Computed example of a mutant assay.
Amino acid sequence: MLIRNKALFNKGLMLMGSFLCVFVSLFLPIWGGHGNGLDAADNMFNRLSKGSSYFIPGVKEDALKLEGKSVTITVKVKDAELAPRAVENLVKAGATAEFKDGAITYSGDLGKVLGAALIDADDLFNNRGPAVLERYAATEKNAEKTIVKAWWAVLDPSIKELQKQKLIQEAKVVGQVNKRGLEPGYNFYGINSEKVLDNVLPLVGLLAFYVLYTMWYGYAIFDMFAGIGLGMSKPKTKSEA
């Protein structure tokens, strides 16, 4: 390989070598906890996301307005294994429910059904899984998550069925229960909640590192290529005779 500027090439090589050392270290369990650097960063962003994703109290108010609204709905649950658990959830909420021919038919007070689902979601979001297990006397592994997942599985197809019955506002509330209640509860279960204002320095430091690390790699490539004569320069203009 023809090196035209050895000093510049060596500078780029040194930058690339140090870049790779840091890169490899990001995959080693030396950043605290039980994971690597990527896990540590991911966990921090998950904690911050959870701190700004607690919408359940507001959704509960909307669900409360639907108490006394009786509905009868037949839906197909995509995951048939969740159907028996979904039926148990509905019965526990005071509805009548039956799983037959691949579909669940349930009747009851929609407000109370949604309220029961949100109680489970709230417990899961706040890492109170044992409270969910006790409520349903469930003992199987990860039953608290299965219970909330079963709620989502039966309520999600209920949205279209309610729309078909011209119950548009009711369908909207069910959608909010799923999106802003059950999903955050399920996804953030087991994660501690933190506020962005309490983690400004780590957050700024991580973003600054990302920008610096990107430039680090860019300058390494730039200097190495410039060292072998493949630099970027403005072409000279030919003067006319």
Rank of each mutant, 00 (worst) to 15 (best):
Y189S: 15
L114N: 10
A226F: 07
W31K: 05
N192P: 01
V148M: 07
Y219P: 00
L182H: 06
I191E: 09
F188Q: 06
S158W: 03
E88R: 14
E170W: 04
E194T: 07
G190A: 10
G32Q: 07
L201S: 12
T72G: 11
Q169A: 13
S239W: 00
G175E: 06
K11A: 15
I159G: 04
A97L: 10
K164H: 10
R135G: 07
T237A: 12
I191W: 10
A143H: 08
R128I: 02
K160P: 01
L203G: 03
F188C: 07
W31M: 09
N43A: 08
V132Y: 01
G129V: 02
A7K: 13
F125A: 11
I3P: 04
D62N: 12
A117D: 05
F99R: 08
M224F: 03
F55C: 04
K112M: 14
N10E: 13
V59N: 03
K112I: 04
T237E: 12
V174M: 04
D198R: 09
N127Q: 10
D156S: 13
L110K: 09
A103K: 15
A153V: 08
K6R: 14
L182R: 04
F27P: 00
K238L: 12
N126W: 03
P57R: 03
Y186G: 04
K60S: 12
A117N: 05
V87Q: 08
A150E: 08
G111Q: 07
A7F: 09
A131T: 13
K236P: 01
A80S: 15
Y136A: 13
S53V: 04
W216C: 03
F27T: 14
E144P: 02
D42M: 08
A220Y: 03
T237G: 03
G58P: 04
N10V: 12
G181M: 09
G108L: 06
N142C: 02
G229V: 08
L167A: 15
N178W: 00
V91W: 00
E98A: 15
K195H: 07
L167N: 10
P57L: 13
D42H: 10
M224G: 01
L26R: 00
L110P: 08
F188G: 09
V91C: 05
K69V: 15
G37R: 09
L48T: 09
G32L: 05
M215F: 14
V204L: 15
N187M: 13
T214N: 09
F19T: 01
K11F: 15
Y213P: 02
E183A: 12
